[in-house]
Amino acid sequence: MRRVDHPRFRAAVAEVEQSIDAAWRHFRADAGTTDDHTLAEVVLQDPAEFDWRVVDGALKQLRCPDCGEQLGAGPLDCHRCELANGYRFAARETDRTAVAAGNEHAIRVASAVARTRHRYTERARCGYELLLPDLLAGALPTTAQAQRFKALINKLGDDELEQVVHPDELLRMDFA
């Protein structure tokens, strides 16, 4: 089974999508408008003023005029989407309570990779997607753990990269 088809992965991406949609709904309600398009354009004028989920919510409201895809999610050769994809990384991160500092950053990066897979390499996808469910549960690997995961992922063959669905599975692989 490919990782993207695995319930663990699908549940994690769905949880992120729901959190982005909820953040957008709350933001829109606080702004007192139902005009998603105009509000999204305002947010993207200065994404550093908003939480990353609000910025991602704004991106979901707009279509790229060049490629027709959701803004920031189009093909790699779409320059407007490439620029918009960067907006999500200019936004603010507020760490959740009761989780390690930096967890929110890890969730933002991992979810961006998982939600726009075609924009990232197979090895980057493998690493970030493997950890996303655990990050959402509050885990945060140490630098040494992250480096270990990366080293193990780098040893995987191209055909194996989509097959690994859990970090423990990666750690159990025999690379001798």
Results as ranks from 00 to 15, higher is better:
48 A>H: 06
71 L>I: 05
82 E>T: 14
100 A>I: 02
166 H>G: 01
4 V>R: 14
45 Q>C: 10
42 V>S: 14
167 P>V: 05
16 V>K: 09
21 D>P: 04
71 L>W: 05
69 E>Q: 15
105 H>E: 02
7 P>C: 01
2 R>M: 05
146 A>V: 03
71 L>C: 12
98 A>I: 00
18 Q>C: 01
19 S>L: 04
34 T>K: 13
145 Q>N: 04
29 A>F: 01
91 A>V: 05
53 R>C: 06
96 R>N: 00
164 V>S: 04
20 I>A: 06
112 A>W: 07
122 E>A: 13
149 F>I: 12
111 S>G: 04
64 C>E: 13
94 T>M: 00
172 R>W: 08
58 A>V: 12
33 T>P: 07
46 D>R: 15
94 T>S: 00
4 V>G: 03
159 D>C: 01
132 L>C: 09
124 A>E: 14
128 Y>C: 03
91 A>D: 06
88 R>L: 13
49 E>W: 09
95 D>P: 02
120 Y>E: 14
106 A>Q: 06
168 D>K: 06
101 A>H: 00
94 T>D: 01
37 H>V: 11
165 V>P: 01
32 G>I: 05
117 R>G: 04
108 R>A: 02
137 A>L: 00
13 V>M: 08
67 C>G: 07
105 H>M: 09
41 E>A: 07
104 E>Y: 00
126 C>V: 11
34 T>V: 13
47 P>V: 12
11 A>H: 07
32 G>D: 07
72 G>K: 12
82 E>K: 08
125 R>N: 12
100 A>S: 02
15 E>V: 00
60 K>L: 11
126 C>M: 12
140 L>N: 00
52 W>G: 00
115 R>V: 06
19 S>W: 08
97 T>I: 06
166 H>R: 15
125 R>M: 14
141 P>N: 09
128 Y>Q: 08
87 Y>E: 11
62 L>K: 07
125 R>A: 10
37 H>P: 01
77 D>R: 13
16 V>Y: 03
